[in-house]
Amino acid sequence: MPVWQESILLLAVALGLAIVLKALFIQAFYIPSPSMEPGLVQDDRILVQKVSYWGGGTPERGDVIVFEDPGNWLAADSTGPNNPAARVLAKVGLYPTGGHLVKRVIGVGGDTVTCCDDEGRLSVNGKPVNESQYVMPNATCAAPLSIQSEDQPCTAKALKVTIPEGYLLVMGDNRSNSEDSTARLCTTKETECPPTRGLVPVDNVVGKVFALVWPIKRFDHITRPDAFKDVPDAK
């Protein structure tokens, strides 16, 4: 086979494998905002694996997930690469994709999440959670941005939500700079508000983040923390 034909064949095989891998197993993304600091920094490149949620598997508390925008969460400039060549490569899985969000699962269907207790911790199904392993250090408390203020940075019992089946409550690790579920939940003053506003449908989840791959000096394997291991199942 002539060199030019062999080169075309190898390129076609490589593209085909990339498309299959992206569709079924692994996909590259980048972090679109500072909301997951300190572990994941804006513009970090990550890998997401999809097989964990096959066959009835669903996201678990503590998982860092990538999901499709459930409704006007993303800024207009977060939709993906602007360079035409990069756009083509992203389509076939050879370049990190944009247009998605990255957050940590705090509660799953049936869970009741409250914030905060007297020590400033989130509680899930009545169990306080120690999030020091991943939340931004020196935070006033585990409270999300939407329930903090300058004069009262951690309001006890300011957040309480029971999550319907098929939905997730997600939060960024950088609690004071994360427009996540808690920034969009219904408030007590709203008389007409769908109970699932601010929650993420499980069907929107692309997969679980398992590796930080760029910059290479910060390469890391992303795993589920132990913080939620003692949380009881929802009653």
Rank of each mutant, 00 (worst) to 15 (best):
134 Y>R: 05
126 G>I: 07
125 N>Y: 03
93 G>P: 08
88 V>P: 00
121 R>Y: 09
151 D>F: 11
103 K>Y: 08
67 F>P: 14
111 D>N: 04
79 T>R: 01
114 T>R: 04
132 S>G: 12
120 G>N: 10
99 G>R: 00
115 C>T: 05
153 P>K: 01
88 V>L: 06
178 S>C: 13
113 V>I: 06
155 T>S: 12
109 G>E: 10
176 S>Q: 15
144 P>Y: 07
185 L>Q: 06
176 S>K: 14
180 D>F: 08
157 K>T: 11
117 D>K: 05
116 C>T: 05
74 L>C: 05
110 G>R: 02
160 K>W: 05
90 A>F: 01
89 L>N: 00
97 T>G: 00
100 H>Y: 08
82 N>W: 01
94 L>D: 10
94 L>F: 08
184 R>F: 15
146 S>E: 15
125 N>F: 06
164 P>Y: 03
178 S>P: 14
166 G>I: 12
76 A>F: 01
74 L>Y: 04
67 F>W: 09
106 I>D: 02
166 G>Y: 09
93 G>K: 03
160 K>C: 13
120 G>D: 13
180 D>K: 03
136 M>L: 14
130 N>V: 13
117 D>I: 07
107 G>N: 04
73 W>I: 03
136 M>I: 11
123 S>C: 15
113 V>A: 02
97 T>Y: 00
177 N>V: 09
169 L>K: 01
106 I>N: 02
164 P>V: 09
138 N>P: 12
94 L>K: 05
186 C>Q: 08
72 N>L: 01
167 Y>C: 15
141 C>E: 03
77 D>N: 08
90 A>T: 00
77 D>V: 00
98 G>E: 00
127 K>E: 15
84 P>G: 02
70 P>Q: 03
74 L>S: 07
149 S>W: 11
141 C>R: 00
137 P>T: 01
130 N>M: 09
74 L>K: 00
132 S>L: 12
65 I>S: 10
71 G>W: 02
186 C>Y: 05
122 L>M: 10
150 E>A: 15
102 V>N: 06
97 T>K: 02
124 V>Q: 06
170 V>Y: 02
179 E>K: 11
130 N>P: 09
67 F>E: 12
141 C>F: 04
76 A>N: 00
121 R>E: 11
125 N>P: 10
139 A>H: 13
131 E>Y: 09
112 T>D: 06
138 N>R: 06
106 I>T: 03
151 D>M: 11
95 Y>I: 06
75 A>S: 09
148 Q>T: 12
83 N>K: 00
103 K>H: 11
178 S>Y: 09
75 A>R: 08
75 A>T: 02
182 T>D: 15
109 G>K: 00
64 V>S: 03
129 V>L: 11
